[in-house]
């Protein structure tokens, strides 16, 4: 444990952190699955409103996706442009 350099320690913990932050995808996947299921239900009930339902669903899915995109950005910053290494 004593022969680990501080840079290696920070980089390793950043890699673990970037893996943990992508766990946001769990919740977003659940939410998007629920939304798509509801959209399929309403298309089955009213097939003539398919175009409206689809475009509203895609806009809503894009809004839902925002949190996982932010998580992706944080993970990418931790992996490729780590700001914590410079503070050592």
């Amino acid at each position: 444990m004593s022969n680990i350099t501080p840079e290696a320690f920070v980089l390793g913990l950043s890699a673990i952190g970037s893996a943990i932050v992508m766990f946001v995808g769990f919740g977003v996947g659940l939410g998007q699955g629920l939304a798509t299921g509801k959209a399929v239900e309403s298309i089955a009930r009213q097939p003539e409103a398919k175009g409206d339902i689809m475009s509203t669903m895609f806009a809503g899915l894009a809004m839902t996706e925002t949190s996982v995109i932010f998580a992706l950005i944080v993970a990418l910053v931790l992996l490729f442009a780590n700001p914590l290494v410079g503070k050592l």
């Binding site: 894009a62 996706e65 925002t66 995109i69 932010f70 992706l72 950005i73 990418l76």
Partner: peptide, 13 residues
């Protein structure tokens, strides 16, 4: 901010 990050994140992924 969220609009640009959404496009950027999706395409970069």
């Amino acid at each position: 901010i969220s609009l640009s990050f959404r496009l950027f994140g999706n395409i970069l992924a």
